[in-house]
Simulated assay, not measured.
Amino acid sequence: MRQPLSQASIVQFGTSRFLLGHVAAFASSAIAEEGSREAVLVVQTSARPEGKAKANALAHQDSYPLHIKGLRNGVPVEEHLSVSSVAGCLVAQDDWEALERHFIQTARWVISNTGDSGYDVAGDTSLSAVPASFPGKLTKLLYARFKAQRPGLTLLPCELIGSNGQVLKEIVSSLARKDYQDAHFSTWLDVECCWVNTLVDRIVSAPLEPVGAVAEPYALWAVQQAPCLIMPFEHPAIEVVSSLQPYELRKLHILNLAHTYLVDQWLTLDLTDSITYVREAMQEPKLRNALSEVMETEVLPVLALELPNMDLNVYWQSTLERFDNPFLDHRLKDIAQYHNDKLSRRIQPVVVMAKNYAIPTPKLSDALKRKNISNINDKTTLL
């Protein structure tokens, strides 16, 4: 059953399959299992035709399908769920007045996942009738709420940017100072609104048409505690933590590092023509053994000293299950994009940490020496 719009206290910017398979799905579960009343209004932020088509489906369907496919404790999982937390969907370009009215009267939380360039303002102004950028739209809506003398909101961005809540706050605050020159509004943004850093982790691998998603069983939404924080609902995948840094480092240097080291070995062993997906790489003993050995002899011993209170072995085993997912077509060629940069961000810091603990890292060091290696005649490999 569709939730009433009057209960859509969560305004979600973005119709991406990730959000459909992550936050909106958690909200639906909370409504069904825990009696939560907090539904979602989805906002399509761009005017792209495919985005508008998805927004139209979200606006008119009572629910959408979410297929969970993968491994859980070594057992194949295939679940077909129905997500019914979405009470409506508005296209910012076409429905601005309705969006502003809802933002003023009903919103309590703001969720966003606007892509890698989602925080790019690029000369935008919130004084436009409909600002082009997400920060521009958000600033304009927050100013309307401020002028209506409404309480501040809690903002829970999900973009994969370090300290995303604080980064978004600084961008919006800068726009507010430039566009409105209202010290009271700036104080309201700083004091009345709650800007929260979060970290998301789930592979939502494919869309379903006209709207829906396919996701892996694993899911995490780590939310950094703040004195002002009140979450809209509870869910087993949500962890409210004192600091996100250990979670960010664990993800970067286990999940992300493992992907990059797998690509390094895939290139080095010249398996690019015979192996396409991560799941296929994990079935190749040369690749699986190389990955397991470097993690167990170099990466995990270092991280165990650097992050002594984190469940690193459990996380590594769950990562292996995710890599083994027989339903996931995760292309190694895609992971290989910006490979040199990923070697620097994901592997090099572990080598530096290891020196502090006198732990040898010959395999990781060899991978760093292979920067600029390329066995694929494709410009996306090592941009």
Score class of each variant (00 low, 15 high):
Q348G: 11
E192A: 14
P349W: 09
L71Y: 02
S242Y: 01
R48G: 14
D311N: 12
S242D: 12
I10E: 04
L41P: 05
L168K: 03
R101L: 07
L5K: 13
L368F: 08
L300W: 04
L138N: 11
K147I: 01
L71N: 02
S82W: 05
N309I: 00
R370A: 12
E170L: 06
G35I: 05
H330D: 14
H67N: 10
E192D: 15
E239Y: 06
G74H: 05
K54N: 10
S292H: 08
N73Q: 14
E33A: 11
D116P: 02
G165T: 07
S205G: 12
S133I: 03
A87K: 08
K52I: 07
P326G: 15
S186E: 14
T297A: 14
S6F: 00
V294E: 01
Q61P: 04
R2H: 12
H184Q: 13
E170Y: 06
D311S: 13
I111C: 09
P49A: 15
A222K: 06
A304Y: 07
A354S: 07
E209C: 02
L208D: 11
S9L: 14
N256S: 09
A215E: 04
I335C: 05
L160S: 01
H67F: 13
V11N: 09
M231F: 07
T154V: 14
P236R: 15
Q44V: 07
P246V: 08
A222N: 05
L141I: 02
W195Q: 05
Q93C: 01
P301A: 08
K355H: 08
A144P: 02
D94G: 04
L364M: 14
L199N: 04
T187Q: 13
Q7H: 13
L368D: 09
L257D: 03
A367L: 10
K286R: 10
P217L: 05
R331E: 14
